[in-house]
Each structure stands twice: as structure tokens, then as C-alpha cells.
Simulated scan of single mutants.
Amino acid sequence: YDRIAQILEGKQAATEDSVLKGYFKQQGLSKEEMEQAIAAFKQKKAASQPDVNAIQNQLTQAQAAAQAAQLQSAATIAAVSLGIDAKTIPYVLKMADISQVMGQDGKINDEAMKQALNKVLEDVPALKPQAAGSTGFVQVGAASGQQQTGASDDALKAAFGLT
């Protein structure tokens, strides 16, 4: 029975090949053109398959970028809460070691963030927030831009005939 099955399979394969050759001849294709068309089809099919490794790499890069942005945002918020001047926050963040503030669970430890920022402020005291003192000029009286607007509005309305 095995020998008969092999003969039938061989006969079936030969029949399929002859049918395909007949079809390609009918379409006006030679054997070489047929092989080229099949090779081109296989290349196109392989090219359309997604590259899982490339997609995985892109995902990893996107996750790292999102985590870095999240750390930067949390560090900025912590710096503002410490009263650091907005002009010096970028410098403080560049000097702070915020690589250790992310926990294993992916959450940011606020206390560790504040410690990292305070360490920078201890190392560079010039970046510490300055207490608002009463330095400079003290204004006495109304500012030059604050005039009685009611009288000038009435004068303008009268000049343009709007009253």
C-alpha cells in the first residue's frame, strides 16, 4: 500500500506540474519568467511580514523616552515645590541624579526626587532659592500708569460724540 501511495503522490505532483506549465504557457510565460515571477512573489511576501525584533526595539525605545519624560516632569514639579527659581530649574535638573528615583514598580518616589534635588542645592548653594527681601526702590503714591480712568473716558466719549 505504501508503494501505491507513493506512485499516486508522484503522479499527482506530475499532474500539478503539467497543469501549471500548461497555464503559464497559455499566459505566454517561459519557465525562466515563471521562476522569476515566483521568486518576486516570495520576496514581496517576505517583505510584507512584520519584523518582530524591529517592532520590539521601537517599543523599548518609546517606553524609555516616555519614562524619561515622566521623570523630567516629576523633577520639574518637585523643583517648583522646593521654591527653586524657574530660571535655574533646568540647571538643577541636569545636575541632579534622578536615575535612582524610579522604583521597581515603575512609580516615581517623590521623597527620593526631593533628596536628589536638595543634594544639588547643597553642592551648589548659588542655586538655592533666595528669600524675597525688601531690596530696591519703594514706590510711594500711585503708579504712573494708574490714572483716573473715569474722567479720561468721559473726555474721550465727549470728544467723539458718544455721550
Results as ranks from 00 to 15, higher is better:
residue 94 K to Y: 13
residue 18 S to M: 06
residue 100 Q to A: 15
residue 90 P to D: 13
residue 44 K to M: 12
residue 125 P to A: 01
residue 105 D to M: 05
residue 87 K to D: 14
residue 116 A to K: 00
residue 81 S to Q: 09
residue 89 I to G: 00
residue 96 A to E: 01
residue 99 S to Y: 05
residue 162 L to Y: 03
residue 107 K to V: 03
residue 50 P to R: 06
residue 126 A to L: 08
residue 61 Q to Y: 11
residue 9 E to M: 07
residue 18 S to Y: 03
residue 60 T to Y: 11
residue 97 D to C: 07
residue 139 Q to S: 13
residue 150 G to P: 00
residue 105 D to F: 05
residue 145 G to F: 10
residue 11 K to W: 01
residue 125 P to C: 01
residue 104 Q to R: 12
residue 80 V to F: 06
residue 48 S to A: 15
residue 139 Q to R: 13
residue 33 E to C: 09
residue 36 Q to F: 04
residue 163 T to H: 12
residue 14 A to F: 02
residue 137 F to H: 02
residue 78 A to S: 12
residue 97 D to I: 04
residue 80 V to G: 05
residue 86 A to N: 15
residue 69 A to N: 15
residue 106 G to F: 05
residue 137 F to L: 03
residue 121 L to G: 03
residue 3 R to T: 11
residue 63 Q to R: 13
residue 123 D to E: 11
residue 118 N to A: 10
residue 84 I to G: 00
residue 19 V to N: 02
residue 86 A to K: 15
residue 64 A to P: 01
residue 59 L to G: 09
residue 76 T to D: 09
residue 13 A to N: 11
residue 122 E to R: 10
residue 36 Q to I: 04
residue 32 E to F: 11
residue 139 Q to H: 12
residue 94 K to I: 12
residue 45 K to T: 07
residue 145 G to E: 09
residue 10 G to F: 07
residue 142 A to V: 12
residue 12 Q to W: 01
residue 156 L to N: 11
residue 121 L to S: 03
residue 71 L to T: 02
residue 22 G to C: 04
residue 13 A to P: 01
residue 7 I to D: 04
residue 87 K to F: 13
residue 84 I to Q: 00
residue 116 A to V: 03
residue 16 E to D: 08
residue 57 N to C: 09
residue 60 T to C: 12
residue 60 T to H: 13
residue 84 I to W: 00
residue 17 D to K: 05
residue 16 E to G: 01
residue 108 I to H: 00
residue 80 V to R: 13
residue 99 S to V: 11
residue 58 Q to E: 15
residue 80 V to C: 08
residue 81 S to D: 09
residue 57 N to H: 12
residue 124 V to Y: 10
residue 137 F to V: 03
residue 161 G to C: 12
residue 71 L to A: 04
residue 130 Q to L: 08
residue 146 Q to D: 05
residue 163 T to P: 02
residue 7 I to Q: 04
residue 133 G to H: 02
residue 46 A to I: 07
residue 3 R to M: 12
residue 35 E to D: 13
residue 150 G to Q: 07
residue 117 L to I: 13
residue 138 V to N: 06
residue 149 T to F: 04
residue 27 Q to L: 14
residue 66 A to K: 14
residue 41 F to V: 10
residue 102 M to V: 14
residue 30 S to I: 08
residue 131 A to D: 04
